[in-house]
Amino acid sequence: MILASALLFVGFLAAWQWMPALFGIPAFIIPSVGTVWDEFLRMLGHDRLVFHTAITAMQVGIGFILGVLLGIVCGFALGLSPSAEFVLSPYILALQIAPKVAFAPLFIIWFGYTVYPKILVCILIVFFPIMINVLGAVRALDPDIVRLARAFTASRVQVFWKIELPAAMPPLFAGLRIAATLAVIGVLVGELVGGNIGLGYLLAFGEGAGNTAMVFVTIILLTLIGIVLYGLVVLVEGRVLHYLPARARLAT
């Protein structure tokens, strides 16, 4: 399995290196692997690539964590209080349907070319899949389980920690997987809209300069940030949801 994966990867790199030239595709459309690698090394030296990558990664990390925490809190608050959900649901729905990336210019007007608008877009975009999944989990919980705990004289707080919170874990992690992929998008949109830091800035800069290889490098790094975050989620999930039968767990 691993061998097949590795062979596929090598094959993919080789195809990328030689296929475009074979079909006469110019380098400014698809630069070869070698060109992209050289550009990567150049950017490391001249464009403070490490700095920009770290900025983006930091914004993704902070936005992700804050968005997740907010989503968990709101998911439980609404899930445990049907009246609150009833009152707030139209607003939640509207905010959920609104394209979150459209808020990026607004946040930049409010906070300027700082890290805050990027983190804010990230929080907003991460928030919904988490909140919806937690809310759904609380609602789907068998009320008889809660009654059983209450019959054992459990307090409200005990019911939350011993029943409701652990019961929400599988859907929470499904939401976290989605959120991990969205977090990078949130930050990137903020960076594209304005500012002079982060991979989004380099991406826009590369585009303006007609430097396709630079665009490729940034896309790859953005993807890597997403992969790392997703990998962390999967890692934690494996520890938290270890009790699930194998068939209920996802391969990737």
Partner: peptide, 20 residues
């Protein structure tokens, strides 16, 4: 209200899947 001297058991086992 619920008391520690009374325990109840239902048709469903209601075992918590995350606990051994």
């Amino acid at each position: 209200g619920p008391s520690r001297h009374v325990a109840f058991m239902l048709q469903k086992d209601l075992l918590l899947p995350w606990r051994t």
